[in-house]
């Protein structure tokens, strides 16, 4: 296998040890390659291990077997190269909106203080929160909190942006707005993104490529090149076009099939 992929997940497996000592396989040996600038969405039945795969890329979980490489370097733990946005609100409540975004730059010693301030305000503006710069986190909505988390992570300038169901806790309207914003942001920034969701519409809307996982232990069921059939610049209108509906139907069928198989096994 060529070593040229930006992210290379090579024969990676994960197992947990249960309290009674038995071994529970969570991820079967699997390999995924991600190109630089690609937006890859992981979908699969709930509890299938897709988040675990992403957390291993982020260095937040160790692998039980196999290795992960980012930009040619082996992943050995979390650092600034792998930015993470969580489902739960992880903005720091003791800081303001701008303070949180500044925190993303706190540990960068490659740039001056003036430059940090400029970058922080740039990302504040990019997520549309300039009027709320001095608000504390408890005074802004859930959607705004996730925008703070995204801006903070982008300000740290990671090589890859890892997003774990970032819009899962939002209402439908906020979710749509953030999806559109994320697409705009991502086009402007050309970031490599791995995005975990269980919302198939969201997956097809955002993805260049969808990886469908099996029920636990996770295997790759399908690897769908969405950008081959759908245009790169998308809006919510795309939800009505036949190509979109076909991909959506295929992915849903795969996941439903997995869930039926799991229920039958129990």
């Amino acid at each position: 296998m060529a070593n040229s992929s930006f992210i290379r997940i090579a024969q990676v497996a994960k197992e947990f040890t249960a309290p009674d000592g038995s071994i529970i396989p969570v991820v079967e040996p699997l390999s995924i390659d991600v190109q630089e600038g690609e937006f890859v969405v992981f979908v699969g039945p709930s509890g299938c291990g897709k988040t675990t795969v992403m957390r291993m890329v982020g260095g937040l979980e160790t692998t039980s077997a196999g290795d992960i490489y980012l930009n040619g370097k082996r992943v050995e733990g979390p650092n600034r190269d792998k930015g993470m946005v969580f489902q739960s609100y992880s903005s720091f409540p003791w800081l303001t909106v701008l303070g949180n975004i500044r925190f993303g730059l706190k540990y960068r010693d490659d740039i001056s203080a003036d430059e940090k301030e400029r970058i922080a305000r740039h990302y504040l503006d990019l997520v549309g929160l300039t009027p709320f710069a001095d608000y504390t986190i408890n005074r802004i909505s859930g959607g705004m909190r996730q925008r703070v988390a995204i801006a903070r992570t982008l300000a740290a300038n990671p090589l890859v942006l890892l997003m774990d169901e970032p819009f899962g806790a939002l209402d439908a309207l906020s979710r749509e707005r953030l999806q559109i914003q994320l697409m705009d942001l991502r086009r402007a920034e050309r970031k490599t993104v791995i995005f975990v969701t269980h919302d198939v519409d969201e997956a097809v809307l955002l993805a260049d490529r969808i990886i469908v996982f099996s029920a636990r232990p996770a295997r790759v069921l399908a690897d769908i090149a969405v950008s081959a059939t759908l245009p790169e610049k998308r809006s919510l209108d795309i939800l009505d076009i036949p190509e979109f509906r076909k991909i959506r139907r295929d992915v849903l069928a795969l996941i439903r099939n997995e869930e039926t198989r799991m229920e039958a096994a129990e």
Partner: peptide, 29 residues
């Protein structure tokens, strides 16, 4: 202190000492 706060600190490049001082202590205060 929520695990997400600690993991956020780590993925933003905080060392162990920085993590305890800037995130953990501040969050638990």
């Amino acid at each position: 202190v929520p695990k997400e706060f600690i993991e956020t600190g780590r993925t933003l490049g905080a060392s162990d000492t920085a993590l305890m001082k800037d995130v953990l202590l501040r969050a638990m205060l």
